[in-house]
Design a protein around this nucleic acid. Structure first.
Lengths: 342, 342
DNA sequence: CGTTCAAATTTGATCGTTCAAATCCGCCGA
DNA sequence: TCGGCGGATTTGAACGATCAAATTTGAACG
């Protein structure tokens, strides 16, 4: 019976073997251990493979080899109005780095009313992936603890403060704000404020630490009233700016924990008639695509996401292929992208 | 020999069968055709499943069932400085819609020096996915032609102008610009310009058509000199604004093909001391996160990406499960998000 | 009470690959 | 000439699920 769909059955290892006049196992060897096959045979098999356009059936290989060459990545829901403008860049870099090593990225989300861990558990139980890339972690990250306990390979973009070592890559957030302060100070600024998130997020706390260190390195004394800690958000940036401007000696420059906070500061400054970039300076963090189109264009700290992705993939694959592999830990330095706001 | 890794072998259908005192096939039936199993037995098996935390081994199931319940999505490289700020929203919506139907999204990229089609071909040959979600298509899209020829299930976000029918979902781009023009006209604007991409992109051409239709609907006559077609980019927006302002009767409002072009217009207007939102109006397209943080905040057309993702997934899965399924075609209407620029 | 038939359950084969073990082949040296 | 040996190749089983066919169970009925 021929259906209307052409649906040519994909060639198998047996088809190739038949055409090349060898056994199925020899074909398998050509693919997985070519040194075991005599060059003449190898060539003959390779020709048959090319002619038939044969590719090993992924599921069959996965089943027997007990590995899927697939890495899981949990996509977090995006809060309305929030920006995760680095995700597209990160995901492309991630899949590309994975591809080069013969792996793929599998996206998954958590079901409503389910917690993140349950989503990981599901994929592990069904042997759907060989490991996970985890991002957006925090101090005692539950997912990381879970993966450690289950001894499932994973690598983290970000950090935790768990005792047990595990592979991670992070951007040196402190170095980012340190650079920002150094830049401002070299431009003559003495009254430099910090606008960051409330204590409790690793990333935010690191950026705060870098700010402090930057001041000291520049020979400036930290003033507590110059440190405003508020949640992320454009209107939070506006409000923080109000607070700072109400001081008897307002700062002349602000280092912000995100481009979003910086946007609020810029808008407030504009409303006050302050010329940012001349009278005062603002620096953001993340170099989101927004930064280049603000008025004035925003100087911002840019994360080397491509390098992060490459490193985190390399770590994870090393772990998968040799579970006893020591866990690497890498800090990558971000760059300050200079525009007109500072 | 016990290794240092705990690595408890995952339970199989036989383990469950043993514990429940039934055969392996009954366990399979409980999972895939529960109506064939007597309620009492079903319950007993279910209990064993729960106690063991059993989940079917994905690769084994895929091999025998000849389906992977996985959908491929090609991640395009992001040009430096370009924005694909809708991708994160779209990908989350996509994986979430897929999850609800028991599917996953597999990301892949094209190798350097390889064309897109080759990347699709690779996944098809290795039976790695059941179908594809294709986006960012154009008139005679090569990928779509290839997938049609190979009779591989796929669904498109966007459109092509190929003769052969295929499932697609698109945002009614013309309706978006039509709404924009209607809004401007109801605010008293008579000289409304269009700033869009050069002819040759379906999306851009549709947005242009909607602009024309909007003018006619409002009883306004189109003026060729009010239509500027330029590539995407912030500086292109700036340049286009220069052109328009050089006219003897410059327009009082501009409908833009993207938020990026609109950003350039806003910046140019600010430089000229024009008060956008009062003296003149600007509308963008896509409601990228950028829009809310421009000065003034940008009125923009927002695409219903969640609905698009849901629909495109539903179409694709329908196709996979029944290849003879007629190909659905859906146009979804975007919304105008009002802010201060218009 | 035996027969019949549908529903419930089991048995055995199979998907396409890789692993492990067996066999084959050619060459060398005694 | 033949045994031995090592590399090349083949054979057969297995991974863990589902499909198809065979078998058992149980209820209904003459």
């Amino acid at each position: 019976m021929s259906t209307s769909r052409a649906e040519v059955a994909a060639p198998t290892v047996h088809d190739v073997a038949g055409r090349a006049g060898v056994s199925h196992q020899t074909v398998s060897n050509v693919l997985n251990a070519p040194e075991r096959v005599r060059p003449a045979t190898r060539e003959r098999v390779q020709r048959a493979i090319d002619e038939l356009g044969y590719r090993p059936h992924r599921s069959a290989r996965n089943l027997k080899a007990r590995s899927t060459r697939t890495l899981g990545y949990l996509v977090q829901p995006i809060a309305a109005g929030a920006i995760n403008a680095v995700l597209d860049r990160f995901l492309h870099a991630l899949s590309d780095a994975a591809r080069i090593q013969g792996y793929h990225i599998l996206l998954f989300t958590r079901a409503e009313g389910q917690d993140d861990v349950a989503a990981y558990r599901e994929l592990i139980a069904s042997s759907a992936v060989d490991g996970f890339i985890v991002s957006e972690t925090n101090y005692q990250d539950e997912r990381v603890r879970f993966l450690l306990r289950r001894e499932v390979p994973f690598a983290v973009f970000g950090r935790t403060e768990l005792d047990e070592p595990h592979p991670w890559v992070d951007v040196d957030n402190a170095a980012g704000t340190r650079q920002a302060v150094a830049h401002l100070s070299s431009n003559g600024h003495k009254r430099i404020a910090f606008l960051g998130w409330p204590e409790g997020s690793i990333t935010g706390d690191e950026r705060h630490r870098g700010y402090r260190e930057g001041l000291l390195a520049a020979g400036l004394t930290p003033h507590p009233e110059y440190e405003v800690r508020r949640p992320d958000g454009e209107s939070e940036g506006w409000a923080a700016c109000e607070t700072l401007q109400a001081l008897t000696e307002p700062p002349t420059a602000v280092v912000c924990c995100s481009d979003l906070l910086a946007a609020g500061v810029l808008r407030n400054a504009a409303a006050r008639g302050l010329r940012v970039g001349e009278q005062c300076a603002v620096i953001g963090f993340d170099d989101t695509p927004v930064a280049a189109y603000m008025t004035p264009t925003l100087t911002s700290v840019r994360q080397p996401l491509e390098a992060v992705a490459e490193t985190v993939i390399a770590q994870l694959i090393a772990r998968i292929e040799n579970p006893l592999q020591a866990s690497g830990q890498r800090l990558l330095t971000p760059d300050l992208v200079l525009r007109t706001s500072a």
